[in-house]
Design a protein around this nucleic acid. Structure first.
Lengths: 238, 238
DNA sequence: GGTTAAACGGGGAGCCGATCCCCGCTTATT
DNA sequence: AATAAGCGGGGATCGGCTCCCCGTTTAACC
């Protein structure tokens, strides 16, 4: 009667409070990473999560593993937001660009800025889980932008990368912790201004070229390969 | 014959290479502060400046003094840029908004992002030199914006603080050093988009309220006073 | 060109703070 | 109530940043 379920649960059953703590740690880390980058002290993350530092190390072997899970968590949640925005855009009365606006503001509240480590070397971009999650996110956002573009509401000389990077930029708090109490309000103001700059027709000509995520990834891969090569050499001569 | 000049020079005469090194240190620190914040390792700054670490400590008693001078240096240079832009705006054939555009892009190249410490606690906002320099900068930028606004080219629901903070935000490189080789190009793209969002007529309604620098300063003062009170108490009970 | 002293560079001691482990206690589960 | 998984705080360890010391270089002035 209970054998199968019990056995299953025996394997994958963390205690309820363990799950709660794990989630708390991830969300606390998300805030810290946005504010201080992925080098934020783990003890401080533990403090913010309201748990002992040992609990952090019990759940995540090292910093890299924590960063990994935070990125995964945020990516998934933002992807979900993008999917919802697409639904809104496809609705009868929906305006694709307004859906895009809504997505952007919501993504900020989900701390999309915590994804910066993806672009740095703090995380392994080749990990299958991360890669898959990232592609899902790109596809969703691209879909949203495509709808706005097709509706003639989004300028045509920008790509997913432009939006994502600018979002990350505008979202990050200024160094020096809580320098402004209502910083969030500021962020949303600036996002709104930025979005106004994205609407069609374009009001100016852009320098550089549209940044697709292909390119960001290419930079990635090159760096990843360099790193792989380096560590190989390291092993070789050792 | 030489007494006066020699005596004068005796007092204010650093060696030529000392001056050169000092300048090198300041500009290297400027880069580092933009990239890593004002906590960047001084040894690394020395390395980038191409001098020994002792030279840094010889010129600047501590980190705070270095930060102070960097902020002053950048503020002055950006103020100069704003003044030039105003000249351009006032010229016969000048377009105030185009002058503003030019100023923004130039300010980025002058590493205006290095001014972030002003908004954090890394620097004493009450220092007369800094305060004066900041006010000069505000006035210049305000003058530039006023011209663009008067020409009907700049939306009326934004203020100096909006521009300055957003500029600092968009300018800062993503954490993880040289993640993108042509990051500068990216920055200028995003600035251009942001500027397009600033042009009149406004395409959307902004949340929050126009951020004048009054407000930023007010936040400042409150924090500064809190800090002063704290240290006073500290002295008192000691 | 020689002399002088300011300025420089590298090496190393001291120190602060982050990481991670250990052990007695708490608490969810049954 | 029994049991063991999970927790929290304290402390050893270690790495990196800061700052000083001293032999050497180099600009400044005769």
């Amino acid at each position: 009667m209970e054998t199968a379920t019990a056995a299953q649960r025996r394997v994958t059953r963390p205690r309820a409070d363990a799950l709660r703590n794990r989630e708390r740690i991830v969300t606390a880390a998300r805030e810290m990473f946005v504010q201080q980058g992925s080098e934020a002290p783990l003890d401080e993350i533990a403090r913010r999560a309201g748990v002992g530092n040992a609990t952090v190390y019990r759940h995540f072997a090292d910093r890299g593993e924590l960063v990994h899970h935070v990125v995964l968590y945020v990516t998934d949640r933002v992807t979900e937001l993008a999917a919802r925005a697409i639904e809104a855009a496809d609705a009868e009365s929906g305006s694709p660009f307004e859906a895009l606006r809504g997505f952007v503001h919501a993504a900020v509240d989900e701390r999309i800025g915590a994804l910066c480590p993806i672009l740095s070397e703090a995380v392994d971009p080749y990990h299958p889980d991360l890669r898959a999650a990232r592609i899902r996110l790109e596809d969703a956002v691209e879909g949203l932008m495509a709808r706005a573009r097709a509706a003639g509401q989004l300028r045509t000389d920008i790509a997913v990368g432009d939006l994502m990077v600018a979002l990350s930029q505008l979202t990050r708090p200024l160094p020096g912790a809580g320098c402004l109490v209502d910083f969030d309000q500021f962020v949303h103001r600036h996002l709104q201004l930025f979005l106004d700059g994205l609407t069609a027709p374009a009001r100016s000509e852009l320098p550089g070229h549209a940044a697709t995520l292909e390119e960001l990834r290419r930079d990635h891969d090159e760096r990843g390969q360099r790193r792989a090569r380096r560590s190989e050499e390291g092993l070789g001569q050792k």
